[in-house]
Design a protein around this nucleic acid. Sequence first.
DNA 1: GACTGGCAGTTGCCCCGGTGGAGTGCCAGC
DNA 2: GCTGGCACTCCACCGGGGCAACTGCCAGTC
Lengths: 342, 342
Amino acid sequence: MVDERRLDVLRAIVEDYVATHEPVGSRSLLDRHKLGVSPATIRNDMAVLEDEGYISQPHTSAGRIPTEKGYRMFVDRLATVKPLSAAERRAIETFLAGAVDVDDVVQRSVRVLAQLTNQIAIVQYPSLSLATVRHIEIVPLENSRMLVVVITSSGRVEQRIIELEETPDDELVSQLRTRLTGATVGQRLGEASVRLAEAIDGFAPRYRPIVTSIVSSLSHTLTSERATERIAVGGTANLARFGHDFDQAIQPVLEALEEQVVLLKLLGEAVSTARAPGPQVRIGTETGTESLATMALVSTTYGSNEGGSALGTLGPTRMDYPGTIASVAAVARYVGRLLNED
Amino acid sequence: MVDERRLDVLRAIVEDYVATHEPVGSRSLLDRHKLGVSPATIRNDMAVLEDEGYISQPHTSAGRIPTEKGYRMFVDRLATVKPLSAAERRAIETFLAGAVDVDDVVQRSVRVLAQLTNQIAIVQYPSLSLATVRHIEIVPLENSRMLVVVITSSGRVEQRIIELEETPDDELVSQLRTRLTGATVGQRLGEASVRLAEAIDGFAPRYRPIVTSIVSSLSHTLTSERATERIAVGGTANLARFGHDFDQAIQPVLEALEEQVVLLKLLGEAVSTARAPGPQVRIGTETGTESLATMALVSTTYGSNEGGSALGTLGPTRMDYPGTIASVAAVARYVGRLLNED
DNA sequence: GACTGGCAGTTGCCCCGGTGGAGTGCCAGC
DNA sequence: GCTGGCACTCCACCGGGGCAACTGCCAGTC
């Protein structure tokens, strides 16, 4: 498969099919693209493309539609970058600029990404696995209960309420605050958890039991999966816009979207398998998720490489890949910039 | 409309239609309900019910389906309470019992409610409007930036990062922490905002500018709508299960679900207009939301009355009202209990 | 050898009319 | 006031025919 024109034909088929959502025949293909050859020639090329598995026809007398392999080829070798318009760039920038904190940044990016691409947007919250501890706060509440709060370098705040056997006195609370913060500040969360355990020894023996239970709760907070991985989803209404042939596919997709685990796996793969810079595309079964067999995922990491967080969009396999890739890349750039500042 | 049997007929129609999703005729109605009269009699009753606007027929030779008014009558006067099974109660209880904090309670209730009712579940986070300040924390970050954190009595933590002109010294930070907390602890958020403004006078004149900007940011955090009103949604995949006649209704509903404003309005009305205790039902256009014209909302407040938070489910007008009402009530009861403890 | 024009062949889509069934409304009778 | 019966209406379903789109192939041309 080296023939130049045949690749042009495949590109034209993908583009037309994405635009019209209808199988494209040799005739209508020539109407829209000036390929300089006759329909018969196109038909021959199509026959070859079909033999090689890049396109297929729903039934004998219909036009061709790209296969997964066809889209893959298109994305890898045929798609030309489609830069965003100045208006779109400005829209992203101004919309994100209004964000007041990390949560807000994430929520706004979901919105803007969904609107830009007319697809489902998925944004992972900045990963905590590489974040460091900035401050640990201990607040006594009524009834021998305490609130422990961990503030991380990424601006996230994790809190938890603990029930204690006895009420700690002010002296202990103040000691806890300074010593625990002192022992962990600047450490990564996983390591901080270890340092906390060591810090227990620094307290007077009579305090040990109470300190131990506080530290154990803190460690939990630091290492719990819930604290490390959260995801925001938006633009689900676009699902209904994908077309009526999607009607039966819509429920599995909605179900997948409610399963944070599935989404985390998808975005997580984006992080770990990223070879080249820039967005990564997984088409249909390449997602490894049965319920997304009719969908494609465009995702990328954002922020500093070590950050390890990702965002992306989910749409039908017949999506506008160049446009989507450009949008995802642009949003990731802005979000990364915003969050690095913080 | 006082005729007893006619009401029985209406009840039977609603029940059958909910069960089968198909217009119900006089014949099939008698197959399922022993009304002790002939089809002809039923037909007469149906004619009257239709005249009075409780039911309608899609076309001349079809059965009847309830109208909005018919459902309303059913809910108000015909539905009999359907207590949850012991298994269901236990499911709610055990599932919610595992929650570790407020966020977790809300997320778990959304899940359990969606699963119980096979509908879309909506849960408002505990309202902050009546919550009180428990603690204010000030954490200096690098580059003359500070993190201000407000911890409320409902267990929620609101934080915000402020950029300052100059870096406050340790002395000031410590003063801020104690004085601001002292001025506001135990106050409702709105009032706390006022007290904060007054507290500025207590600081040395040279600190005034910096304190003023910190206080202003805090006030913002305390009174911002974002802090007061958040909502969790779940079970959207059930939308696709509602039936194929819902296909065109699905997009507006998904859009409405993404608009927190719409949801807040709906649940907010549930709070303000609650006359009788227990769940409240709004059917079709009664929701006041065009995009939900084919849906019905079952909602109730939870927690102490003054709490003012609400939860509920959204489903097709042809839903199992007794079952849904029971589920909503039960979940609200458990959630209220859990959150009051905290 | 590559491309073209033309032609026959296939197949789904759409429209049509007929049929069957479900359900109604009405009326006369009990 | 209820019932049985009957005529009527209207939709849902089915099968067939015409239509249109597209293909594959073949013979001819550059």
